[in-house]
């Protein structure tokens, strides 16, 4: 699965916002995600995609695109 599609799917579940409205430029804060929600997203991504994303890096993500980039990096390390 494309990383953006996978991450948007997880974000949609956690935030309740439709996945097709979660473009790369969307600010995570604007969809009501607090700091715990980012950890929840990281754990869900880890389960769904089988890649581990660092907690500290996730806490620094500001947009959907930032999160996708982190997951892409993690996937590249696994590959």
């Amino acid at each position: 699965m494309n990383t953006h599609t996978a991450v948007a799917g997880v974000l949609a579940t956690v935030s309740g916002v439709d996945a097709d409205k979660l473009g790369p430029e969307v600010a995570l804060e604007s969809i009501g995600l607090d700091s715990l929600a980012l950890l929840e997203v990281a754990l869900a991504v880890q389960k769904d995609l089988g890649v581990a994303v660092d907690d500290g890096d996730v806490a620094g993500a500001r947009t959907v695109g930032d999160l996708v980039a982190l997951v892409d990096d993690a996937r590249a390390r696994v590959a």
Binding site: S35, L36, L39, A42, L43, D55, A59
Partner: peptide
């Protein structure tokens, strides 16, 4: 809190 959250779940 942040480290505990992830560690607890895992």
């Amino acid at each position: 809190g942040r480290q505990v959250f992830t560690s607890a779940v895992t």
